[in-house]
Nucleic acid binder design. Structure first.
Length: 257
DNA sequence: ATGGTAGAGCATCTA
């Protein structure tokens, strides 16, 4: 089973590119973030014609997450599971695809450590942690994937000195990510490539950062051991970040046996 | 040290 995550930064602006990519890469399950669409504008028919069932949780202008699947799509939960303080934003959707529970998330950016949005980011991560216990369990086949807006370690940052005091690398958010790992998840890209350096999934549009190799690895695919045991390959698809009007993120792909 | 780009929607906000 081939599973991918991609922050498309507006599905309206990126649909043609996403369609071409689906045909080329042939993933079985795709998690999309930042669709920036309301549910009634989501192009479910375009994906259906390519063989995908889909579920979308959107709000319009900002955010918006979706799961596409060729291997079944059931037990959809939009937003955090009942019992958790609901998120006003459309940032998480959960479904079961081919016997794997899949959580697709768009973690808040945080903006700056002193910004209230950063506290929202930390509380959001705490609620994601609770969510996992309600929709799955560490002994199950579970994938938690998406744009985490956290670089797990300094090896995932092109120049850690430039990020001193910034979001994406701060200790409190890394601790929240570590708590998810401790709960029973593995960073599948890092499992496959423990020593790879300068592999990123996001580059700022500005100042030619992509072409200069100035990026962060913030798009993650986390899996329980039942999933990690099936890991065959993992890669960042940098080709999808090239050419005319790309997203600022590249897809991350994992192949499971 | 600052600002550089892109997408939302039409003045800025978000990233």
């Amino acid at each position: 089973m081939r599973l991918a995550t991609w922050n498309v930064n507006s599905l309206r602006a990126r649909l043609e590119r996403v369609e071409e990519w689906l045909v080329e890469v042939q993933p079985d399950v795709v998690c999309l973030q930042e669709t920036k669409l309301a549910d009634d504008a989501f192009p479910a028919l375009a994906f259906q014609s390519l063989g995908y069932e889909s579920a979308h949780f959107g709000q319009g202008q900002w955010n918006g997450v979706a799961i596409l699947s060729k291997v079944g799509l059931t037990d959809v939960v939009a937003n955090f599971a009942p019992g958790i303080d609901p998120d006003p934003d459309a940032r998480v959707i959960t479904a079961t695809c081919g016997e794997v529970r899949v959580v697709c998330c768009y973690v808040p950016n945080g903006r700056a450590l002193a910004d209230p949005h950063y506290d929202y980011k930390l509380s959001w991560l705490d609620r994601l942690h609770q969510h996992l216990g309600l929709v799955s369990a560490p002994g199950d086949a579970l994938v938690v994937t998406g744009d985490f807006n956290i670089a797990p370690t300094d090896a995932d940052v092109y120049d850690p000195r430039k990020f001193a005091g910034a979001t994406h690398v701060s200790e409190p958010e890394r601790q929240r990510l570590a708590a998810l790992i401790d709960w029973g998840l593995v960073d599948l890209f890092r499992l496959q490539h423990p020593d790879s350096e300068r592999v990123y999934s996001w580059w700022d549009y500005r100042a030619g950062d992509f072409h200069q190799g100035r990026g962060l690895r913030i798009d993650l695919v986390l899996g329980t051991s039942a999933v990690a045991d099936r890991l065959e390959w993992s890669v960042v698809d940098r080709n999808a970040r090239k050419g005319k009007s790309p997203s600022d993120h590249a897809p991350v792909i994992v192949d499971l046996l």
